[in-house]
């Protein structure tokens, strides 16, 4: 009923401008709503300057870039740089690791905020809920370098606090960060710890907008808390979940450089060579900006393809999609 009411109100409101538009000619909409269009120019300029502007740098991927010769003075080399990076020893490994780490992240770091948001929404005491939320948000504000240092203080095999406690209790030291498989689990767990609180914000907002009548109806039908969460809350925030899932799929070829960089060590290198790490090594450490740009471009294109594919699949499954 509410939707129907709103819909008709919108239609009524929309009618007069349509008529006026004809009267004022093609630019009428600009004259009428110029304040809104003016406001729009700010974010638009921001996006153009800081998102599209730097894209001119992508030409480096097709050039033998020399700092001294500048963007346009450097020699064009076509796809040679791409051939070079595809032939590199670390390239395949980096693609594999990036996909692996981010897929696992998608499974754990993406789902945990949903679970947490469902749990938080069930807390009745407002004070207790706020304290919990604040505590859960805090890790998001810590830099990965700090988190890395804390992780090694706590988890390192030789001196870590956790291992010292294990030894005191008569156990054996566990190489949480110094053995490949363990490192992978620690990497994921630390990632979940760092991001899950912050990730709940959007879901909590979405949950708070669910019509209470649905819960009341479910209660009347005899549904318990689990049943309400499963049959009311989750379906109601489905659109948000799908949208965030599509956006996260676009990042599956990216991954956090800082996170790998801060948590890596040379004894566990099986999973630590990722695309961002290679971009850093080639671009910043070696000064080979062409190679780093080509890799970045490759990564972005795969990311774009994944977003488009996910969007299409979502639409086929009956969801709204993103585009």
């Amino acid at each position: 009923m509410q939707h129907a009411k709103n819909g008709s109100a919108l239609e009524v409101a929309a009618a007069p401008p349509l008529m006026r538009k004809k009267k004022n000619g093609g630019m009428g909409f600009l004259r009428r709503d110029w304040q809104l269009y003016f406001l729009l120019t700010i974010p638009l300029a921001f996006v153009l300057l800081f998102k599209y502007g730097p894209m001119t740098g992508l030409v480096l991927a097709f050039k033998d870039y020399k700092i001294a010769r500048g963007f346009w003075g450097s020699e064009w080399v076509g796809l040679e740089v791409f051939h070079e990076i595809f032939a590199k020893y670390d390239f395949i490994r980096a693609v594999r690791n990036t996909l692996l780490l981010n897929s696992l992240d998608l499974v754990f770091s993406f789902t945990m905020p949903i679970v947490l948001a469902l749990l938080l929404s069930e807390i009745r005491s407002v004070r207790f809920k706020r304290i919990n939320q604040t505590l859960l948000y805090l890790p998001h504000f810590l830099s990965w370098i700090i988190i890395g240092a804390i992780a090694y203080q706590l988890l390192s095999e030789g001196n870590g606090v956790v291992n010292n406690v294990i030894v005191m209790m008569g156990g054996e030291r566990i190489p949480f960060l110094q053995q490949d498989t363990n490192w992978l689990f620690s990497y994921l767990a630390i990632g979940v710890w760092q991001s899950m609180g912050w990730g709940t914000i959007i879901y909590l907002a979405s949950i708070s907008s669910i019509n209470p009548e649905l819960y009341e109806a479910a209660t009347v039908d005899g549904a318990g808390r689990w049943r309400k969460a499963w049959n009311v809350t989750l379906p109601s925030i489905r659109v948000t979940i799908v949208t965030l899932l599509i956006l996260n799929l676009g990042k599956i070829m990216e991954g956090s450089f800082e996170r790998v960089f801060a948590l890596q060590n040379k004894a566990t290198t099986e999973f630590t060579t990722t695309i961002p790490v290679l971009v850093y090594r080639w671009g910043i450490e070696s000064g080979d900006f062409s190679r780093a740009t080509a890799l970045g471009l490759f990564q972005a294109l795969i990311g774009l393809a994944l977003v488009l594919a996910a969007d299409r699949i979502a639409k086929r499954l009956g969801e709204d999609g993103l585009l």
Binding site: L49, G53, P54, T56, G57, I67, A68, R69, G70, F71, W72, G73
Partner: peptide, 8 residues
Amino acid sequence: ACTDGNNG
């Protein structure tokens, strides 16, 4: 974006 900084 291209002026000054990027063209040597």
